[in-house]
Each structure stands twice: as structure tokens, then as C-alpha cells.
């Protein structure tokens, strides 16, 4: 079983982000972990669309329809990046509100306060 170096890097990024989400106590660090996961997913999609020896899907001189990579994963990732920015901004806003209300970002203390 062998996976390419790009797959390996992308999956590693996803797993590093997941580790941060599972282990870290600080809400901001969890959000950073989510961002890292998102980067990994984007990289994975792009590398699935890659075709060896082909160029970017911009059909200019010397790049015909038969030597360009798959444009669909790139279009999907373009969407995913924008949505990622939007959701990260919204999540950070919720974190700001939590801090202003409870003066802490530690999720264990937050959980205790709710009780």
C-alpha cells in the first residue's frame, strides 16, 4: 500500500488539525486546529485532481484540453476556501462573545459554568 507524498502531506495536515481539536483546551487553539484540517482537505482535493505531467487548466499557448489537469477540484476548493474564511470569522466572533461573557476560553471551565 503506497500513497503519494502529496496525499501523505494532506492527510497529515488533517490529522494534526484533528489532534488539536481533540486535545487542546483553549477555544482559539481548537479553531486553529479546524483551520489546519480545512487546509489539509483542500490540499487533498487538489492533489486528487492532479494529473502527472500536465499544466494548470488555463488554456493558453501550448496548453490544450489534453494537457491540463482536472478543473473541477480546483473550482470546488475555491468555494471551500471562501466558505472556510466565512465560518472561521463567525466562529471567532462566537469566541469573542464567550470571552466577554465568561472571561475565559478554557472549554472545561466553560462547560462547568453552563452546568
Amino acid at each position: 500500500m503506497s500513497i503519494g507524498v502529496y496525499y501523505f502531506g494532506a492527510v497529515s495536515l488533517i490529522l494534526i488539525g484533528l489532534y488539536a481539536v481533540l486535545v487542546k483546551k483553549n477555544l482559539l487553539k481548537i479553531l486553529v486546529g479546524l483551520s489546519i484540517m480545512e487546509t489539509g482537505v483542500n490540499l487533498l482535493l487538489i492533489s486528487i485532481g492532479y494529473i502527472a505531467g500536465r499544466s494548470a487548466p488555463i488554456l493558453s499557448e501550448g496548453v490544450g484540453p489534453n494537457n491540463a489537469v482536472d478543473p473541477i477540484p480546483q473550482a470546488l476548493v475555491l468555494t471551500a476556501i471562501v466558505i472556510g474564511v466565512a465560518t472561521t470569522a463567525l466562529a471567532l466572533t462566537v469566541a469573542i462573545n464567550l470571552y466577554e461573557t465568561y472571561k475565559t476560553l478554557n472549554i472545561e471551565e466553560l462547560r462547568r459554568l453552563r452546568g
Binding site: I48, I51, A52, P71
Partner: peptide, 17 residues
């Protein structure tokens, strides 16, 4: 491991191109 890296897997993508 069932998705070979760098192979041509395009279906709709080829139509678009």
C-alpha cells in the same frame, strides 16, 4: 490507495476542458 496519484481520472472535467 485506490485513488492513484497523478492518474487521469477526469469524467466531467474533460468535457469542460
Amino acid at each position: 490507495s485506490h485513488v492513484p496519484f497523478g492518474a487521469d481520472k477526469m469524467l466531467v472535467g474533460q468535457y469542460y476542458l
